[in-house]
Structure formats: C-alpha cells, structure tokens
C-alpha cells in the first residue's frame, strides 16, 4: 500500500515536473480542475517562490486516464478509500489517512530511487521531466522549444 502511494507520487514527479517533496505536500483536492472533453488543469503552489501559483495543463494520461496512475484514478480509488478525519483537504495521503510531511516524503522516495540509480535525488524527477519534454518538442516541431518546459 505504501509502495503504491510512493509510486504515484513518483509518477506525478516525473511526468508533471512537480518539485518533490514541497509541492506534493502543498497540493489540495481543490487544486485539480476537471473540465469537459477530458481536459483540465492543476494549480500548483510554489513554496520556493513565496507561495505563488502556477497552472499546469497535463496530458490525458496524467489527468483522467483509466489505465494509468492518473489524478482522477487517485482521487476516486485511492484517496477516497483512505481519507479520514485527519486528512483535511490534502491531495496526497499516507495509507493511514494522514497527509504527507515534507521531509517524510523525501526520505521515503530517495531510498527507492537509489535502488535503481545510486545518485538519485527527488529533485532529479523535475530535471528528467524538463529534458523529456524538450526532447518531445524536438520530435514534434524539429526544434528545442523551451516555452512549454518553463513551468
């Protein structure tokens, strides 16, 4: 159960480029907005930039896919199951129902990543996402377009 929870946090870390662990810790259920035609956006609070907010428009696979670890699957299947009176409005919860603490999440993700790559740090997910999205722009447009990567 705990492994599943951490794998979902890693999924969003790698594919959305969230700053882990601070931004995962600050995300709330009201920050995820689903709209018509499988679209939507996520509001992310940036602790690093004095709690300013940025909007990210994720792909369908990340937002509401049925077969991936999407945000919709997370909200309907996992979070609804473990939420209790301690949960509050936090988006990501531990198996006990309590929200994650910043350092706790970082300490949990690091050793699992180090099993795969010994120099792994949680912030490497954000670097990976930036490089992956730049490569995607190169494949789609023929140039390294940094505009969609700036978020």
């Amino acid at each position: 159960m705990r492994q599943h929870c951490i794998s979902i946090c890693s999924f969003f870390g790698f594919l959305m480029g969230i700053r882990i662990p601070t931004e995962i810790y600050l995300m709330k259920t009201t920050d995820v907005h689903f709209e018509a035609k499988n679209r939507g956006y996520v509001v992310i609070t940036e602790r690093k930039k004095h709690d300013s907010q940025r909007n990210v428009i994720p792909e369908k696979a990340i937002l509401n896919s049925r077969v991936h670890k999407s945000l919709k699957n997370w909200l309907t299947s996992w979070r609804a199951r473990v939420a209790n009176e301690y949960s509050g409005d936090a988006l990501f919860l531990q198996p006990s129902g309590k929200p994650f603490e910043v350092r706790h999440l970082g300490h949990k993700i690091s050793p699992i990543g180090k099993m795969i790559w010994k120099d792994f740090q949680p912030y490497d997910m954000r670097h990976w996402c930036a490089v992956a999205r730049l490569i995607r722009t190169r494949i789609e447009t023929g140039n390294f377009d940094c505009f969609p990567v700036k978020n």
């Binding site: 792909e59 696979a61 990976w128 490089v131 992956a132 490569i135 995607r136 940094c146």
Partner: peptide, 22 residues
C-alpha cells in the same frame, strides 16, 4: 543546461521519453 542535455540524449537515442513511460 537542459537544452544541452536534451541535445546529447536526443543524439544518443531519438525517442520520446514520456511516451516510453506511458
């Protein structure tokens, strides 16, 4: 720096990492 790394990785293997993950 990101663009430089992306160029290197793209030269090594030109495939979409995000699609590979999904």
């Amino acid at each position: 720096g990101y663009i430089r790394y992306a160029e290197q990785y793209y030269r090594a293997l030109p495939c979409d990492w995000i699609s590979c993950a999904l």
